[in-house]
Write a protein that binds this DNA or RNA. Sequence first.
DNA 1: TCGCACATGTAACGTGTTACATGATTCA
DNA 2: TGAATCATGTAACACGTTACATGTGCGA
Lengths: 178, 178
Amino acid sequence: MKKPIFRLTTLDFSILGLLMQKPMTGYGIRMMFEKTALASYSSSPGTIYPALSRMKGLGMVEKKKQASSNQELFTITKRGISLLTRWVTQTVTRNDVIRNSEILLLRFAFMDILASKAEKRKFLNSFLDVVNQYIKELEAYHLAESSVMPASGRQAFEHGLELNRATCRWIKNLLNNL
Amino acid sequence: MKKPIFRLTTLDFSILGLLMQKPMTGYGIRMMFEKTALASYSSSPGTIYPALSRMKGLGMVEKKKQASSNQELFTITKRGISLLTRWVTQTVTRNDVIRNSEILLLRFAFMDILASKAEKRKFLNSFLDVVNQYIKELEAYHLAESSVMPASGRQAFEHGLELNRATCRWIKNLLNNL
DNA sequence: TCGCACATGTAACGTGTTACATGATTCA
DNA sequence: TGAATCATGTAACACGTTACATGTGCGA
């Protein structure tokens, strides 16, 4: 994993994904975060506006005033689209599944216009591989350790297993109907 | 939600939960975070040691050298146990479910020694209420908006719905067998 | 004209991460 | 004796949060 000169956060990509759908004011973006709890970030001004400035500095978004009204809307640039596309279409890693499978779903949600059907399939296939592998490991661990785990711990563990199985079913179902 | 004089983070409680099981060295805690990806925090020294110092300053943990060996182990104090107990047995809120349902499972996992069967039931019941309510809202939204949502967005949304349903099943099953 | 929604910003703060640094112990 | 693991720490940094601050436009 090479280190880029600048780091883009999930917050940045979340905003880019919103701007991909349509240009919005900073306030509009805030309201989207408030309504949809996007990736569980705060919708407060101190979160959104600094992020927008940063992204503007990096040439990922532009501030354009509409000719029709006097509103100032943020628009995603070509550079922004390119970065966002690269982000969503990355191959799914083991770490993604273990530590931020919520973000994987966010990436998928943004794929609508950004990725071809083939790229979606590729994403889902790598996702499925990793999840299946992970489920196997969890099952093996469960088999070996469940008798010595504290009851609540074991039950919470089983919950995690169930969620991964649900994700697995979701992927398979999607791959069949895509 | 009143503001306490000091703030305890999920990281703090995760560490407390580990120390509840048995006293450990800082290094031991780090290794636990590395193996189990506990609440998806980094296992790096820069994460664990400053947290331990902070917690020691707040009287939640103690550093005790074992008589038998020359190891220095961190131990949870009575104050720490009290704070941890209060944390895990809090009533489940809507916000918990929407923004950090993973943390709810962590809380449940730690309940083994910290909570009575009745308290576990109370927790699970409030959890179930909130999840059921949330699922209803998601279903209503889906019914109303699915036709105008972009395909990937709708599918990701459906994934979220499925996870919540799986959680709901898990809770119900547990309540029957507790 | 009162209040609310729209709209934008910033300063202080704490926390987690990365990277760097050091030393002891164990074992091959 | 050299490598690997155990063990602890800290400094620089960036990010997200809270709280504060300000102003406009519109409808009741």
